Simulated assay, not measured.
Amino acid sequence: MLKYANNIMDSQRYPSPNPAIDVFLITYLSDSYRVKAFLAVPKWEPGTENGKFPGFLYLRGGIKGVGMVRVGRIIQFASEGFVVLAPFYRGNCGGEGYDDFAGEDRIDAFEAFEILKEHPLVDRDNIHIFGFSRGGVMALITAIEKPDAKSIVTWGGVSSMFLTYEEREDLRRMMKRVIGGTPAKVPDRYSWRTPLEQIEKIKAPVLIIHGAQDKNVSVEHAYLLENKLKEHGKRYSKWIFEDYTHYFPPQVNRTVVQDLTLWMKNGGYYPET
């Protein structure tokens, strides 16, 4: 069993579709809950100056079975030279507790960030945070809590739970159940899940990636985040893809993965800009 941090309770090898990447299914303690996650580790020699890999915290979208972490997806990022840790969040795939939709389950992301720091092959001063869809708001919340993050990427990411409730009628029943009511009845609970008013606490550069035709998470989320970053003088990049929705075509997806990981490795700058 691979155990290098005190809160790792169990780890088992998991079938990897890439012979150059080791994959583990780990169980770690978050609050009092056992939470599941995938860990992907490249087999080749690390390329960083201190002989270690950068860390990559992958924060999934969706809730419960929708938007679950896929091994193929984390392999994409590990193949770019990162040790990738992807929590399932509490209450998923045999994990204890209940998925709280960017509520108390944020602790799962915070703990995963610390686990990456403790990995023997990870440069603890070079940890990046990535969030897709619902994971976008999780990434921002985590970056606020962990100001030593090296960079933050939000791809098709939620930035406001108020806006999500407004634009996703199909999610309203779930949001009322999980959050405890509507934005009108429990605005504090929606505010707590909306990190825009704490953007000044983020220290790292932010990359916003969004499809302009996105119907799952409207591009307005990207613009809300951009405006707050501007307001507080934060360094950010914005890549809006006019022709794409929430999910990009496979070839475009691969190219964007390569570009965003290059942006991360260059300290929040893309070499051609």
Rank of each mutant, 00 (worst) to 15 (best):
A109F: 06
P195T: 04
I75D: 09
T142K: 02
Y4L: 14
Y190T: 04
P271G: 05
I127Q: 03
H232C: 11
M9T: 08
G135L: 10
L225Y: 00
L29E: 15
P183R: 02
I63D: 12
F241H: 14
F88P: 08
Y236V: 10
Y269E: 12
P87F: 03
M138V: 03
I74R: 02
N7Q: 12
W192I: 08
I75Q: 07
D125M: 07
A102F: 03
P271A: 09
N7D: 14
G267R: 03
V69H: 05
V158I: 15
I107D: 13
W239D: 13
D214L: 10
E80M: 12
N92T: 13
K176I: 14
A222K: 02
G136K: 00
I75H: 04
K150Y: 10
P205R: 02
L116V: 09
G62H: 04
G47H: 14
L225Q: 03
A20T: 12
P249C: 10
V219K: 02
Q12R: 14
T194Y: 06
D108M: 05
P87H: 03
P46K: 04
L25H: 06
P271W: 08
Y98S: 14
S11H: 01
V219D: 11
G65C: 03
F24M: 13
R193V: 14
N253A: 07
Y190F: 15
K201P: 10
D105Y: 01
Y223D: 06
I202V: 15
Y58G: 09
W155E: 14
N50A: 13
I129R: 02
D105V: 04
G131W: 05
G67K: 03
V217K: 02
I202P: 06
G95L: 09
T27K: 08
K201M: 15
F88G: 03
G180L: 12
H119R: 04
F82R: 01
P19H: 05
D99A: 11
G51C: 13
T48K: 12
F38T: 04
M175I: 15
H246T: 07
D188H: 05
N253G: 00
V153M: 12
A109E: 11
R70I: 12
S191Y: 09
M175T: 02
T182Q: 06
I127W: 06
N216I: 00
D125W: 05
G180M: 13
G55T: 06
M138S: 14
E220F: 04
M174Q: 11
M138G: 11
Y58L: 13
M175Q: 07
F24Y: 15
R70P: 04
N50R: 11
G181C: 11
V83D: 10
G65F: 11
D170F: 06
K3Y: 04
Y4G: 09
A5V: 05
G135H: 02
G91L: 10
P17K: 01
T182R: 01
D170N: 10
V66H: 10
Q258E: 15
S159R: 00
E104Q: 06
I179A: 05
A86N: 09
G136Y: 00
I208W: 05
K228V: 08
V178K: 02
P250G: 07
N216P: 00
D31E: 14
D31Q: 09
D243H: 03
M175A: 07
R254C: 07
K146D: 08
L260K: 01
L25P: 01
T27S: 15
I26C: 08
